[in-house]
Amino acid sequence: MDLSVRIGPGTLPNPVGVASGTFGYGSEYEKLIDLSIIGALYTKAVTPEARPGNATPRIIETAAGMINSIGLANNGLAGFKTAKIPYLRTLPCPAVVNVAGAKGDDYARVIEELADEDCIWGWEVNLSCPNVKTGGLALGTNPAEVEQLTARLRKLSSKPLIIKLTPNVTDITAIARAAEAGGADAVSCINTLVGMVIDTKALRPVLPGKTGGLSGPAIFPVGLAAVYRVAHAIKIPVVGLGGITEADHAVQYLLAGAYAIQIGTANFIDPTVHQKVLDGIREFAALHDLQTISDFHQFID
């Protein structure tokens, strides 16, 4: 079968990507995983200025999940250019830069300054980080702002533009339609769900920021339902993520209408998950005689 995925002007070799924030910039995993099998590597978020990230602890495990509050810790644009770009040039898979910021200008600046880098396949615009005070989630919950910002970023680069959606809204399809109207080539969903754990001995939230972003198997059905609804509301491709730990989960996302998927938290747990998911997608396609990824979409109305 043809596993390639077309997103706007770009093509990914296969639908199995690795989610932003869970895979660094690739180098962290090169000793454990054959990076050439990765369909798309979504980098740790890049903001214009370097960010140290949030106070600790930043991670807490929950039932079949984990809550993180990293706070977009990254080296900033300057650090990204000197420390990360040279590595991305050697990457054997497409690199999608996850773009974040506190305001529209920040997102625009990251894309503007990196627009001519040939080693960058495309952009994933993080309008959904729950762990920073401004930007991220705050920007991504208002359809009018999402459309306006998408349209602004669209003009800055001809590379594929993917808007990453938050599930922390009443109607995720409204945000997806806004991204489509603004000229996005695809949307990815879902980012983490806002979650919280309280330490009943210390009588305070475990995370200093009180709440964080829930990921892992616990959110799989939520992500799947969001992808199903979004895929049936817009015409541009949907990249599905949330709780994928095995091939069957990825197949479910494709059946629900996704063209590609991202593996996130499972990267921390199983270095063989990418190969297993890729193999499982191939096996399912062979079993049902599917030729392309869009053939997965014929079963669920």
Partner: peptide, 17 residues
């Protein structure tokens, strides 16, 4: 010691000041 996510340097979870 710190609560750890990936343990390979990718997630920025297990930091100390």
């Amino acid at each position: 010691e710190q609560t750890m996510g990936c343990a390979v340097g990718a997630c920025m979870g297990c930091v100390v000041r």
